[in-house]
């Protein structure tokens, strides 16, 4: 009997201590808000992208001539000061040093005086081929994996034999931003063959003359007309 009484007592105690099962979550929510804000501000959501570039290898054996390219397809693009690009076609032979070809000025805009316009005009055939191919893939006429799409595009580029061959050179006052922009422009316009080469001394003079900078080259170096 005594036991039963005790049990009753215990039951009564429980009833008296019964309280609301809810816990106040407000501080926890506050804390979480803070943490979320912190992570959102400190984390870099988009990873930076990369652009690959292959520079021509140095010729170890001086007796081997560098590969020959067609002069009429050669476009020399020189990065100049003040975000300008100067370009001319063909090559300059040693006997022409007194009569250097004139330079045309371009900028990085997409307008009529822009680099993109000039490149696309010259590379229209290849660019159209690539665009058509891409359209076919997008509309579903051609079904293939991403890898083979890229392969086919690079095959279109290697097969191309009419587009310009672009030699990119940089005058010393150019910036790294210009360099990346011009390489980017090559990718946008689907130029098949381009490379970055050292600037020649006469090209330095040509740029200085075109941009109206006092020449840093020896006075004997001829100016262009």
């Amino acid at each position: 009997m005594a036991e039963i009484i005790q049990e009753e007592k215990a039951g009564g105690k429980k009833k008296a201590k019964k309280h609301n099962p809810h816990i106040d979550m407000t501080p926890m929510v506050d804390l979480m808000c803070l943490l979320i804000t912190f992570f959102m501000l400190t984390s870099a959501m988009s990873k930076p992208k990369i652009m690959e570039i292959n520079l021509p290898e140095r010729l170890k054996d001086k007796s081997i001539d560098p590969p020959k390219i067609v002069a009429s397809r050669t476009h020399n693009l020189i990065l100049g000061p003040n975000n300008k690009i100067y370009w001319y076609t063909g090559t300059v032979k040693p006997e022409d040093y007194n009569n250097l070809p004139p330079l045309t000025e371009l900028d990085f805009s997409t307008g009529p005086n822009g680099l993109r316009q000039m490149l696309l005009e010259r590379n229209r055939a290849l660019f159209k081929k690539i665009e058509d191919f891409k359209n076919q893939v997008i509309t579903g006429k051609l079904v293939m994996s991403q890898d083979s799409v890229l392969k086919s595009i690079s095959k279109l580029k290697t097969d191309d034999d009419t587009g310009p061959i672009v030699l990119i050179k940089a005058y010393k006052k150019a910036t790294y931003g210009n360099f990346v922009d011009i390489l980017d422009e090559m990718n946008i316009c689907g130029i098949a063959r381009y490379t970055f080469v050292d600037i020649a001394f006469y090209e330095n003079t040509m740029v200085e003359h075109a941009a109206g900078i006092a020449s840093t080259a020896p006075a004997t170096t001829p100016n262009n007309k």
Binding site: S46, K49, E52, K128
Partner: peptide, 16 residues
């Protein structure tokens, strides 16, 4: 001879 230039992504549109 092979470099990766780190850039940020920006779309370019060309009107044929």
């Amino acid at each position: 001879f092979k470099f990766n230039l780190i850039t940020t992504l920006e779309a370019a549109k060309i009107n044929l």
